[in-house]
Design a protein around this nucleic acid. Structure first.
Lengths: 212, 212
DNA sequence: CCGCATCTACCTAATAAGAGAGAGGCTGCC
DNA sequence: GGCAGCCTCTCTCTTATTAGGTAGATGCGG
């Protein structure tokens, strides 16, 4: 046995819907002398419940999860404990979610393809309340800065556009006139700097504004 | 120590670009008495090289990888050893890749969010040359059957359509006339059963015909 | 209360996209 | 050789989309 350090171990909760990923992270974390996994969650609601129960030092959170997605979990956990230390970890690299999570108070954000060392450093950083963001992610978050954001209504319209609906169809579904639908589409095009609706969908997808 | 069985252990190679996932799978596999990980690859080329070197019983392969993607690896490995037993494992659930891999000779296909037991069963099945396909995946592969496939040219056009290019722009890039571009777009729409180009992009994405 | 943003709605004119039909050159397969 | 499938090009016609401007109604924060 290794001598136990004076400091307590960093208590970590893992939340990810892939058992494989949880196993991988758990194996990595538990191999470290200074940290341990105290619980694992497979969906958003479980993550919130387990956070409340264990009050860990760090919550490692996948953005895409069943029941409640990452952004919602971040929100809820910070309501429970405004000082919560959350490390977002995902395969996803669109910039909208990154921005949302970080601006809501997540302490770190990194991608799943990060090497072991980087993941462990990130957990340590976040546990000490230091922000951690991998370089590529930081760049994207900066890119997102200054770009106009879509209104809720525009997002609804955008979603329908992405499904290939016509303006007329969109109007019917949202119970507005075709003219209004056009206006929304137009301002979406302007904000996303796109020439056609199809390009708008491509841009929106790249930014993580919509999921397909 | 547990008594060693008469049978040899199933020798497994893991290929995935996420260190976390490799760790998770390795931990799961090595805990089993009847299997062991003999090598791990982080990209397609490495996977091929390690396969050649170790000639494992099972190759567990992620579809999306740097350097060379899953489909290409399946092809190459089966050239090296036509009896190779390959288990495709991915987060991706579009049906095009599933179909491609299975029709090329991969023995199994499952999703990363599968529970531990299912993953292990799949490895065992494939190691005995029995096909394994999780139910949801099988359904999608069947769906794909009978649906018209796009020609190479149409796929090129589709890619440009997905980027939001206009017919005129597509024509210029492919050095064809706008009329011809329209013809291709039209037959894409017909084959994908879409009304507009934007819907075509949505369908194509869902089917895994294109990546964004 | 005022200003600002948003959502709503209408208009015209220009452009792009989609439907339909036809047709020649090319390949590969039977 | 003949046939099928693909790619290419042409044409017309209709509809959808986009650009431009204008403007009333609402709600929110200063």
């Amino acid at each position: 046995m290794v001598a136990v350090l004076t400091r307590k171990k960093i208590r970590v909760i893992l939340a990810d819907d892939h058992p494989v990923v949880r196993d991988g992270l758990a194996a990595m974390v538990n191999q470290q002398a200074d940290m341990e996994v105290v619980a694992e969650a497979g969906d958003g609601e479980e993550a919130i419940a387990l956070y409340e129960q264990h009050q860990p030092d760090v919550l490692v959170l996948d953005l895409r999860m069943p029941k409640r997605d990452g952004v919602a979990v971040v929100q809820r956990v910070l309501e429970i404990n405004p000082k919560a230390r959350i490390l977002i970890m995902t395969t996803y690299d669109g910039d909208e979610d990154i921005f949302q999570c970080l601006s809501q108070g997540a302490k770190g954000y990194l991608l799943k393809d990060a090497p072991r060392q980087e993941i462990l450093s990130a957990i340590r950083a976040v546990s000490e309340d230091r922000p951690y963001t991998s370089s590529g992610v930081a760049a994207k978050a900066l890119q997102r800065m200054g770009k106009p954001s879509l209104t809720q209504r525009e997002l609804n319209v955008l979603e329908l556009v992405a499904q290939g609906r016509s303006n007329k169809d969109i109007a019917r579904r949202l119970s507005i006139t075709e003219g209004t639908a056009k206006t929304h589409v137009k301002s979406i095009l302007t904000k996303l700097d796109a020439i056609s609706r199809t390009e708008a969908v491509a841009v929106a997808h790249k930014r993580g504004l919509i999921r397909l």
